[in-house]
């Protein structure tokens, strides 16, 4: 067997391409056995969306202090897919008393459901609010029983869960590709082998791009230093592995180049 590669998985989210279609949300929901979000669970603010599309309104800079006065044609709806940022310096990790969440050597922030006792400290300490608690025992209607993904654990009530970068697919990629002679994980092999995270695979506009940040040829490595790149809440020093590319606004001077 070939020497195992050192990976650092990451994602690039190109806000410019996002149409807010929610395909990623649905794909994630069905891939990862996430309980159904009913109207009730939304009202209780206990809905689970490992990836969610946040919508916000953008007004021209001159109206920043008084957004309600901006002319309606200049107010733009914007979409921002938010998922676990898999921070290198994750605030949720050191606070878990039972090591239920930790950073693995491939740049992923992982959750061990078995160990989790549900103190919910990690959720408090997550600035992105991407950690979800099972307030109730998850139930699926009888007709959806066969829809559950056998590769993913069904979590019981009382545990935390969050985006895993579809670790089951990544693992499959590692065993299948790296197990072969001269096997090497590339963007192409990930895409061909159906090993991309569900959300990436489902995204119709290629807003979400997944890959190995250690591999200089991968698309994420090339995009991570794009002039449009930024990270969410960069100032608190969490060092996310999810990189955002900002919206190109032709009205803005510095964006004209991307035009």
């Amino acid at each position: 067997m070939a020497q195992r590669m050192k990976h650092k998985w990451g994602m690039v989210v190109d806000i410019d391409k996002c149409t807010g279609c929610q395909a990623c949300v649905v794909a994630c929901q069905s891939e990862n056995n996430i309980p159904l979000n009913t109207e009730d669970s939304f009202h209780q603010r206990r809905a689970m969306e490992w990836i969610r599309v946040e919508r916000y309104w953008e007004v021209p800079d001159e109206y920043r202090d008084r957004p309600e006065e901006a002319p309606f044609q200049d107010v733009k709806a914007r979409f921002m897919p938010v998922l676990c940022q898999h921070c290198e310096n994750a605030p949720c990790e050191p606070v878990c008393p039972v090591f239920a969440t930790y950073h693995n050597d491939e740049g992923m922030n992982v959750q061990v459901y078995n160990r989790c006792v549900g103190t919910r400290y990690c959720a408090n300490n997550c600035p992105y609010q991407v950690r979800f608690f099972n307030f109730w025992e998850p139930v699926w209607p009888e007709r959806l029983r066969n829809q559950l993904n056998p590769d993913v654990t069904v979590r019981s009530r009382g545990v935390m869960e969050k985006c895993t970068f579809c670790v089951q697919r990544v693992r499959r990629a590692e065993t299948k590709i790296e197990g072969q002679e001269d096997g090497q994980i590339t963007d192409k092999s990930l895409a061909e082998g159906n090993f991309m995270p569900a959300c990436v695979q489902a995204c119709p506009t290629n807003t979400l791009i997944f890959g190995d940040l250690e591999d200089p040829d991968s698309q994420v490595s090339r995009l991570k230093d794009d002039p449009r790149h930024y990270k969410l809440l960069e100032n608190i020093g969490t060092e996310p592995n999810v990189i955002y590319l900002k919206k190109i606004d032709p009205r803005r001077k510095e964006d004209e180049a991307h035009g």
Binding site: C96, V98, F99, R115, V117, G118, R157, G158
Partner: peptide, 24 residues
Amino acid sequence: HAGRPWRLFYWVFPYDWARGVFPN
């Protein structure tokens, strides 16, 4: 207040010497 109070021994006791898993 914990989600799974029946699993609390994971929390305070270094229960799993075999695998070297220790409370954080």
